[in-house]
């Protein structure tokens, strides 16, 4: 396995699950499939349409999103919106993400460990 393939495999492992946090966070303002896809790619999330669209329906089935059809425009669109429960879960996930980020940062700071061992 080349270095690139190894890296992309690990990156994929690391990114798995971030789309859920991002979607639940973005959809506090109602949005539809394609708009969410645009928002996420603009924000730097590498998400594919064929992953995102089924994911939205799965989150809806879990009660983390609700949906309603908006037929005001020429093109009827299904708008998703984060539920209270979804918001709570997204907050918990963001908390965990921040904790991990800090933990990884602490491990990566060599001064912290030397200072700790000298004390």
């Amino acid at each position: 396995m080349t270095m690139d393939a190894t890296l992309s495999g690990h990156l994929q492992e690391l990114r798995r699950g971030t789309v859920v946090v991002a979607s639940l966070t973005v959809l506090r303002e109602p949005g539809y499939g394609y708009s969410l896809l645009e928002t996420l790619s603009a924000a730097g999330f590498e998400v594919e349409a064929n992953t995102l669209y089924p994911l939205l329906r799965r989150l809806e089935a879990q009660g983390l999103l609700t949906s309603s059809w908006n037929t005001d425009e020429a093109r009827p669109r299904k708008f998703y919106r984060t539920t209270e429960q979804g918001d709570a879960i997204a907050a918990a996930l963001r908390g965990e993400w921040a904790r991990l980020d800090k933990a990884v940062g602490d491990l990566d700071t060599p001064t912290g460990t030397t200072a700790g061992s000298e004390q």
Binding site: Y32, G33, Y34, S35, L37, A49, Y53, R57, W69, R75, P76, R77, K78
Partner: peptide, 13 residues
Amino acid sequence: DIEQELRTSIDDA
């Protein structure tokens, strides 16, 4: 339901 949503998404793209 899936048909309508998918068609809209494709049209948007």
